[in-house]
Design a protein around this nucleic acid. Sequence first.
DNA 1: GTTAGTGCAAATCGTTTGCAATGTT
DNA 2: AACATTGCAAACGATTTGCACTAAC
Lengths: 125, 125
Amino acid sequence: MRYSKQRELILNTVLNNRVHPTADFVYNFLREDNPGLSLGTVYRNLNFLAENNMLKKISVPNGSDCFDGTLTDHQHLVCVKCGEVSDICIPELINIEKSIFDKTGFSINTSSLAFEGICGKCKKK
Amino acid sequence: MRYSKQRELILNTVLNNRVHPTADFVYNFLREDNPGLSLGTVYRNLNFLAENNMLKKISVPNGSDCFDGTLTDHQHLVCVKCGEVSDICIPELINIEKSIFDKTGFSINTSSLAFEGICGKCKKK
DNA sequence: GTTAGTGCAAATCGTTTGCAATGTT
DNA sequence: AACATTGCAAACGATTTGCACTAAC
């Protein structure tokens, strides 16, 4: 992997952001200081970094994919009202993973799991 | 809800198909006998039927949404190699659901869960 | 007759890609 | 010099939408 300024900026934007940014977020965030940056470059780098295990790509139902700099095994909660994506760790999934494999031969990647639901904040409204 | 021939055909296509059909599948399947049918109508009806709890809409990571006529609580396994979507029932999720709610206030809809992974057939190759 | 539902084509959204120019090694 | 990476704009696939027409009630 060859160095590039853009890649460094893009990776750091994901790593330093408590939120789970989308490509569009990264693009607009960096655009302020880097007017020449292109959206294609952001997509290319986010995907490239995810393929090289420097980021995780999170599929969001009915929404843009977003990216996560936390590489340790964990899952996500996606609020269907406000779209917020938060981290959660559910160790019990290991057992479920194993029993599904034994029953069906299907090997789950539990760390790709996104639970849909309604977050506490949205429920209060 | 007013009756329409198209709606009836579309609903039946999902109900009578062991696979979890996408809008495009339903469209092409019905097109043979109903040349006038439009893709917009298929989308409109599938979404409408899902909103009215006559079908379930399943978000497939990196793929087209698909639909499921089985309304009882269950989850899905999505193979990232071949794209196959299969049904599975994981009763243990009730406990996980409850403990996440107690910890975070987030209420999960477990029946929207799609586990990504590799199915038995694809692994053999 | 009113209005929900349709077909069609255009529009939208998120994302990817081809290509010539540029940057890194 | 070789080739990875970029910016740009065009292309893409899935889905939605506006509108005039048709069908259900």
